[in-house]
Nucleic acid binder design. Structure first.
Lengths: 206, 206
DNA sequence: CCGCCATTGACCAAATGGGTCAACACCCCT
DNA sequence: AGGGGTGTTGACCCATTTGGTCAATGGCGG
């Protein structure tokens, strides 16, 4: 790809990336037209192919970018705060996630879709152990939390899994475009987390 | 549409419907080609347009069909068993849902997608109160259950919502094509439900 | 052997696809 | 003012795909 893309104002880069992710999130790689991406970004198709030699190259770049963003912001930053309470840390993580949704409206749906992409033009470069990454991140997360606060018989791994699944479900059932929608999402998440906290923590830690 | 479609063997109808739902579930209405549907069903495009005058008509028919199936099987049948225990009834409902996934692999993703369809050719006929239907179904469900088994302070509506969200998340993150995948899905659901049951029910009802 | 009907696949005009390219508009530097 | 670099455009190309049609076929019941 043309490295000059990176010397564009950040805003403009974001605009193009977002538009592309939004479009790729809506249809298959093959069915997503460069024209639609350009139109959505309010940019000419020529410009797109000026920075990315291919539709494929654009897609691959986006994929890399999306993964980096996810790993860097959503997963790692959580720990930096040094919070050791399971639910507080998870909540902060989820807050970061919501910020991501705000900033890159198409990101999660796009990442989700790369999961199912079967296009032979992409497959060699895609197909990696995202599940494994997720799994080990969760393990790592758990190892830093105060798990003793949970009642006996509670499997914290399962709790986190349940909450992540629910978050995914919420993300799937909304477009989450406006700020209020995102806030509503976060509010609902918090309600669920609070409920779990209330009944899964030992009473002395409430 | 051509009513003779219904005199086709049930198997053949299902094949065509499934193929169409699978395809419509993958791309936008506009981007889904009749050709692809026909090919997936192993049928000529001519036949498709023999039974459905339009791509639009096919889509609208599918939409109606999918909704009927959902309402009839997934929502209503749950109550017929007369089960009044919250988790048992929910589990039965979820089992029915998994059967649906088995029988119509593309159904849920298709229904999900109709949610976002903005195509002007469809919009007049779509745009539903599926949320309302869902909401009232849940209320109705709750009114039949033994809610006294819950500990004080538990909001059963929220519990059901959490479980449904998680189920949706699970459905979103897998293709759920093979039988094992579906069983795994069900197993994970059950683990979550059991955990909730264990900690949200009063002890005398465990 | 006939007639019926589900089914085909070649066919069409129109639209859309990815990708190119010469030209433009703007800005900085003399 | 003029020149050169750069970000950007939109018209253009042609191969493919599109929704939809239709005459022809094939098989089955009578």
């Amino acid at each position: 790809m043309n490295e000059k893309f990176f010397s564009l104002p950040e805003k403009r880069q974001d605009l193009i990336r977002s538009s592309a992710m939004l479009e790729f999130g809506e249809n298959t790689f093959k069915k997503t037209s460069a024209d639609a991406i350009a139109k959505r970004a309010g940019v000419s198709k020529g410009l797109l192919f000026h920075y990315f030699k291919d539709k494929r190259e654009l897609y691959l770049y986006l994929y890399q970018y999306a993964l980096d963003v996810c790993v860097k912001h959503y997963m790692l930053r959580t720990y930096d705060f040094g919070e050791t309470d399971f639910f507080l840390a998870l909540e902060m993580g989820h807050k970061v996630k919501m910020d991501l949704v705000r900033r890159y409206p198409g990101l999660f749906r796009f990442v989700m879709r790369t999961y199912y992409e079967r296009d032979s033009v992409l497959s060699p470069k895609l197909r990696r152990g995202l599940d494994d990454l997720m799994e080990s991140t969760i393990r790592d997360f758990l190892s830093r939390m105060d798990l003793y606060k949970f009642k006996d018989g509670v499997d914290p791994y399962q709790v986190i899994r349940l909450l992540l699944l629910a978050a995914e479900g919420m993300l799937a059932e909304t477009n989450a475009s406006t700020a209020e929608e995102i806030n509503a999402l976060f509010a609902e998440y918090k309600r669920h987390a609070d409920m779990l906290r209330q009944f899964l923590y030992k009473e002395e830690y409430l």
